[in-house]
Design a protein around this nucleic acid. Sequence first.
DNA 1: TTGTAGGCGTTATCAA
DNA 2: TTGATAACGCCTACAA
Lengths: 356, 356
Amino acid sequence: MPPSTRHRRPLASTLQVDIKQVAHEAGVSTATVSRVLSGRGPASDDARRQVLDAANRLDYQPSAFARSLRTDRSMIIGVLVPNLANPVFLPFLRAVEHLAQRHGYAVLVADTQRSAEVERLQLNRLRAQRVDALIMADTPQDRAHVRRLADAGVVVVDPDTFAEGTRWSVSTLEADATREACRHLAGLGHRRVAYLTRGAMSRRRSPDRWRLINATCRSLGIEAVQVRLDRHRTAGAVAAVLEDLLGSDLSPTTVWSNSHLLAPEILRAMADGAVDIPGHCSFLTFGDSPWAAAYRPSISVITSDLAAVAEAMTASVLHRLGATEAPEPPDIEPAVFLARQSTGPPPPEPARESIR
Amino acid sequence: MPPSTRHRRPLASTLQVDIKQVAHEAGVSTATVSRVLSGRGPASDDARRQVLDAANRLDYQPSAFARSLRTDRSMIIGVLVPNLANPVFLPFLRAVEHLAQRHGYAVLVADTQRSAEVERLQLNRLRAQRVDALIMADTPQDRAHVRRLADAGVVVVDPDTFAEGTRWSVSTLEADATREACRHLAGLGHRRVAYLTRGAMSRRRSPDRWRLINATCRSLGIEAVQVRLDRHRTAGAVAAVLEDLLGSDLSPTTVWSNSHLLAPEILRAMADGAVDIPGHCSFLTFGDSPWAAAYRPSISVITSDLAAVAEAMTASVLHRLGATEAPEPPDIEPAVFLARQSTGPPPPEPARESIR
DNA sequence: TTGTAGGCGTTATCAA
DNA sequence: TTGATAACGCCTACAA
């Protein structure tokens, strides 16, 4: 008995069926079993039958480790998510999982919890797992660590550089819809807009959004202001900020929420403050959901199909991994602005006075 | 040159740093490197320094495969989710991921898409990955396949048998809250309740819920009826069903939604049908969210802390894996019924007549 | 305290 | 078409 096996799990040999047992059962060599089951290399019909029968009888599952060690391919795709608490990443994750699964790839989730340190640890773990590919749901905090994976031969894709410059890139998708929302507000007669944000959004994309909103609004004669709620985490605090805001010199006629997570908090504050939507103040948000549509008034939203983006990214990755012939044509619907009931004409100026 | 290396990825040796390179760089043997980095076995301070330095310089990440193959432990926990589209599983997944990560375990997600066939495939994949543990977010479609994992030595935990019979089991948690909701409705004077369901819920838990609601209501003098919306997937169809229901002989004074996914659809239908909540008809649902709380009227809900359940399950698993000393004391908050504004006294009988 | 060496389960080469 | 066999990267029993 080899010394190193003495202190292993005693029943290991009987717990997991290995290729030798299948070979024995089928009356062939392990090489033949491997060839038949992996589909690589020749095998007679007879041998094939024997092997498949035996494998089936023994309920054999080849060890992914051993296979990966030998073939230098893990068949694992890592997904880096900035914040698993945010439901918007669910369709993303699901799309990746489904497509990957269909091509024999497993999916390893890594939540960075929006922390650079956790991100580093997670990327190292993914490196240790020798993932074949890395799909990022958002811009990483530190590109250097990601580059290390890329340097190690990992296929990496992120929403920014993916389809850069084409209309498929995430920022491009969103930009058009954002501009349309601004035009919509201008057309209704709004002149003062407050953009409410909280730090949950990626620190990179959020400023881009604000810059775009600000620039577009200005060009349309709308005065826009950004209000950061980072330190206001309770419903009461948000309500206080909102009350100050609506009573201030700015007195915006539209409140624009930066995220789908933030929206219900603002809506609560507005309802508690008896702010009529859209009579006194219009409201819109990034991110859609059945609840936003069910709200009365139904909420106008800017929504992008993150699942479609994820699918396109995954398809691209699978192609670069050689798993698919050609990358599926990206048929991503651009992000859209959906004007629903929560955006309407602003109140006439006298009416606004009476609110104070 | 060994023949088998000739046709591998040509740069593989330079792409991934292996233990030999670290040993060479540190001027020690691979055994010493392993001992230092894994923390098992003796090593002189000098050797330790050399190895850590070298590993750091080369940015070495030990291959998880090779280690797993050798140690017979994958350090991977599989999570089986019935439907990644349902946001309620997000806190679950997140809780597992965070706790697992803290103890050095990676998390592999498997979405069964509520299909027995996909579930089988996913379980086989998890078996091939040799996951050390399997955490199920819901009752599996087919216990037999799960048992195969358990027989192979995988630590398995599912919400039904987990803490069976204790107040921590999921069904127990929910049962108390459900009974309280029934009592709440009875106390308000409701006598006719409609329980609206759709197939999305696990086929096992949903009937349990309905049985409990039905029995409890009857004992309180409430007539309850279950309405299946399985084939009514459009907003219009749901509205039609609802209109029929409210105009029927039953004319329930409370509509009870089976899931948080279904709730907004029902709310839309009620709003479109000008059904006043709770004036004409009360409403409540399983599953909470900020949007449910923000809705006007705010929605009464039965909510259980799925994240806490997931955490307890993961802690139990980690303990059985020997990763933690003792299983953390389960401090799960029981599921609760939150009476908000959407449940109120039913309309007086004459008022109900006028709705028709 | 250290190095040597064997083997984990699989695939790929090569000779038959 | 088949089987014997040498690796893949790591860990660990054992000898030094």
